[in-house]
């Protein structure tokens, strides 16, 4: 249905954005690509009185790759990540995960910051942020603060972002070239929300055993977070078929999806196990 009424504001600096948010506490929402916000408004699940557009704020769509890792400006579009050839080595897990985000037309508008702020547990970017221990830079009236993804996601569509704060950028820590990884999803049609998905990476120690294991799930968790029990089932082990089955079983038990119209919680838990077992095989076979 048609959008509810609102007042449209398009300031030109982050400071002005935050000032407008603070001037209308709880009544203003930031819009960038609008690919999650506008459907939400069309359904009347949100009716903000003010929309503060980031379109005139310069420099928020940069992808910076340096020794600290990959920094994505909040207004970076999925399309920008797809088009950036450096990311194939600088962060292959991100690059692969982003290929699963929505459809072609949505990918030309949707943004990293929008997805993080929307915090849909079925979305890829929150999963990657949580799995990779991303750090978000937030700006509020009191200035900037940094926050780990693990502290940012609090529940489905719920984050630690205050009403008067905006996301400036997200940093994914540096990606070692030898790292083993995989990202797998299952959806009925390409571009649909996945019924389930897994993000996995681990490093190898001197004895070829897995260490520093990170596992996250898409669409099969209450909110975007890691699966520490499954991770510790892999750490210190050689990645073989038996270990893969055990880790997959642990992840299946640890995942906490809800049932909905598309799939039951039991199905999603089972799917997480199946996908993670396949992901472990893929990651083990991957050579850098």
């Amino acid at each position: 249905m048609k959008l509810p009424n609102f007042e449209y504001l398009a300031p030109s600096s982050p400071a002005e954005v935050v000032a407008l948010l603070a001037a209308h506490p709880g009544e203003a929402k930031i819009i960038a690509g609008g690919q999650s916000l506008l459907p939400t408004m069309a359904f009347r699940l949100a009716q903000p009185a003010y929309l503060v557009d980031l379109r005139n704020v310069e420099g928020m769509n940069r992808i910076v790759i340096d020794d600290s890792g990959v920094r994505l400006g909040a207004r970076t579009r999925w399309r920008d990540i797809e088009d950036d050839a450096r990311l194939a080595t600088a962060h292959p897990l991100l690059k692969e995960a982003i290929t699963h985000v929505a459809h072609y037309q949505v990918r030309n508008r949707g943004t990293v910051g929008g997805s993080l702020a929307h915090a849909d547990p079925a979305a890829e970017m929150p999963c990657i942020a949580a799995t990779c221990e991303a750090e978000l830079t937030l700006l509020g009236p009191e200035g900037e603060r940094r926050m780990k993804a693990a502290d940012f996601f609090l529940g489905p569509l719920t984050t630690a972002l205050s009403d008067d704060e905006m996301i400036l950028e997200v940093r994914l820590p540096r990606w070692p070239a030898q790292r083993r990884w995989a990202f797998l999803e299952f959806a009925r049609r390409p571009g649909d929300f996945a019924l389930g998905g897994v993000a996995l990476y681990y490093d190898l120690d001197a004895e070829n055993r897995a260490c520093n294991t990170h596992i996250g799930v898409v669409g099969a968790c209450y909110y975007s977070k890691r699966l520490p029990i499954a991770e510790s089932a892999l750490d210190g082990k050689r990645v073989d078929a038996e270990t893969a089955r055990a880790v997959a079983r642990a992840a299946s038990e640890e995942a906490d999806p809800t049932s909905d119209f598309h799939a039951s919680a039991e199905y999603r838990k089972s799917l997480v196990g199946t996908l993670l077992e396949r992901a472990l095989v893929t990651a083990a076979q991957r050579t850098s």
Partner: peptide
């Protein structure tokens, strides 16, 4: 009118976008 069917696709500055998920102001 909520971005799933693609019927309203137009091209904005060279990129295909859903015109129901973009404000005229944008």
């Amino acid at each position: 009118e909520h971005g799933v069917c693609g019927a309203c696709t137009v091209i904005v500055d060279g990129d295909a976008v859903r015109s129901c998920l973009m404000l005229a102001a944008q």
